[in-house]
Amino acid sequence: MTGEKDLAVLLQNMEPVLNAGEYVFCTVENLSEIPDIDKVLFFFRETEAVTVVLKKGTANEWSMIYSYIASWITLNIHSSLEAVGLTAAFANALKQENISCNVVAAYFHDHIFIAKEDAEKAMKALHALKMV
């Protein structure tokens, strides 16, 4: 199953969904430090450490350090990993509202992490993209 590549179709049909909860970015030296890997939303191995994203409550339970509390928005449209312009379009829309975004492109959907306090404003900006 391949995703959509046409930017106009992607923008017109994407459905941003604000996922419940608060999410945080933490680091560990290696994954063996994680008590329950099933509670990790995603991880990425960088040169310096492994970044893990998980629910804030889980990070607190595991006594992990974080400084950024995020909301998680999923763009519910199957975008192709080869699609051109989608990330730029939504990043620019969020930039216009002075909202920082951290993006994860997974196989089926794009996921955007924004500061918790910007969640509703970000949703409005993303919905406005459908009108363009």
Rank of each mutant, 00 (worst) to 15 (best):
V103N: 07
S63L: 10
M1C: 07
A83Y: 05
L54Y: 01
V28L: 09
K130T: 07
F43H: 14
A106G: 11
I114H: 05
G3Q: 06
N30E: 09
A49K: 04
I112N: 00
K130F: 00
A49W: 08
M14V: 01
E120K: 11
H109S: 05
S79P: 04
M123F: 02
L126Q: 02
E4K: 09
E97Q: 15
F25G: 06
A8G: 11
Y68E: 14
A59W: 00
M123T: 05
I73A: 04
A128R: 05
I77W: 11
E48C: 01
F108A: 10
V9N: 14
G57A: 13
E22P: 00
W72D: 04
I114Y: 08
T51S: 09
A49M: 00
T58Q: 07
H127I: 11
K121E: 12
F44N: 09
F108K: 09
A70I: 07
I65T: 14
V9D: 10
E48W: 07
L7A: 06
V9Q: 13
H111G: 02
L81M: 15
K124I: 15
M64Q: 05
S79K: 07
I73Q: 05
A106S: 14
D118S: 10
Q12V: 01
I34A: 07
V40E: 04
T27Q: 12
E61V: 11
A89I: 03
T47P: 03
V104W: 06
T27N: 09
L11V: 13
A93N: 08
L75T: 07
I73K: 02
L75S: 07
S71D: 11
A128K: 12
I34L: 07
M123Q: 05
A119S: 11
E48Y: 11
T74S: 15
L10P: 03
A70S: 15
Y23H: 12
K39E: 15
D6K: 08
V52Q: 00
F25Y: 10
S71K: 13
V50N: 03
E48K: 13
N98F: 12
E15Q: 13
A122W: 01
I37E: 06
V28F: 03
F42E: 03
W62M: 08
